[in-house]
């Protein structure tokens, strides 16, 4: 079972709550996905429409809320959002994202590391969203991140795992769980991440914008399970050419 910061999760699929057509669809899709942790964002209330509380449909006993710092452009903004999120009473969990470039929404490694260092000291359980940079993953781990969340491809692009080579290195090196986040556009992408040995995946857009979000949520759940099973079973590894002894590697010198 997956354990992050001492908490265990039966499902290795984490859901997002953005971009759904309605809170009803969101709830049904998340229920179908079997996920136990969902990301949520923090925003000012719309004073013209104060009743619009879409999160009220989600049972917070069933779903662990993972507040994100989306919209933060630097460490200071992210830290402010983090503290606000904690005041919500939802605990210390935090998906840290710092995205200064509004076009690509790619995470800023320098500010993310800085914010992680500070937030960990303040007692947050920090899960940083990061580019698939192995050294950054290790630096974040050293700074006390509870997991690392490398991106498969830029957020919302549904391109799948364009960073496979890097993510593989991260998975091999990290001591903390690796959650592949962003860019997973199809159940096959999620399965691929799990087969590679990722500890979990986070999927939002691909579920929210699908023709039938409830059905695709179920498909993602099955793909994640299949991928994990495959990983644990041990895939037949890719074979490399291990040519037999050539004259060059003769061992005649041995006594």
């Amino acid at each position: 079972m997956l354990t992050i910061a001492g908490r265990t999760f039966r499902s290795r699929l984490f859901g997002g709550t953005g971009k759904f057509s309605s809170s009803r669809v969101m709830k049904e899709a998340l229920d179908a996905s079997g996920c136990e942790m969902v990301t949520v964002a923090l925003r000012r209330i719309d004073l013209d429409n104060p009743e619009d509380d879409i999160m009220s449909v989600l049972d917070r006993k069933k779903y662990l809320f993972l507040p994100n710092t989306s919209g933060a452009r630097d460490a200071d903004e992210a830290i402010r959002l983090a503290r606000l999120a904690r005041a919500s009473g939802g605990g210390d969990w935090l998906k840290l994202e710092v995205t200064p470039d509004p076009r690509t929404l790619l995470p800023d490694p320098v500010e993310t590391l800085k914010a992680t260092e500070i937030l960990v000291k303040e007692g947050f359980i920090v899960l940083p969203y990061m580019n698939a940079d192995p050294i950054l993953a290790l630096r974040l781990q050293d700074a006390g991140a509870a997991a690392v969340m490398p991106l498969g491809s830029p957020i919302g692009t549904n391109q799948g795992i364009m960073t496979a080579f890097q993510i593989e290195i991260i998975i091999n090196q990290a001591r903390v769980p690796v959650v592949v986040d962003a860019g997973l556009g199809a159940p096959s992408h999620a399965a691929q991440a799990m087969e590679m040995g990722a500890d979990a995946v986070l999927v939002n857009t691909a579920i929210a914008v699908a023709g039938d979000p409830v059905r695709i949520a179920r498909a993602f759940a099955m793909a994640v399970e299949a991928g994990r099973d495959a990983f644990e079973a041990g895939l037949g590894e890719k074979r490399v050419d291990a040519s037999a002894s050539s004259p060059e590697t003769g061992l005649d010198f041995l006594r």
Binding site: R43, D53, A87, G89
Partner: peptide, 28 residues
């Protein structure tokens, strides 16, 4: 300054206060 829930009943808004009302919304 973030207010605790238990303060809501007793907290008196000061003049010129800058208030931010925030809630969870959908996000990835």
């Amino acid at each position: 300054v973030i207010l605790q829930k238990k303060e809501y009943d007793t907290f008196v808004l000061p003049e010129n206060a800058r208030l931010e009302l925030i809630r969870f919304v959908g996000g990835g």
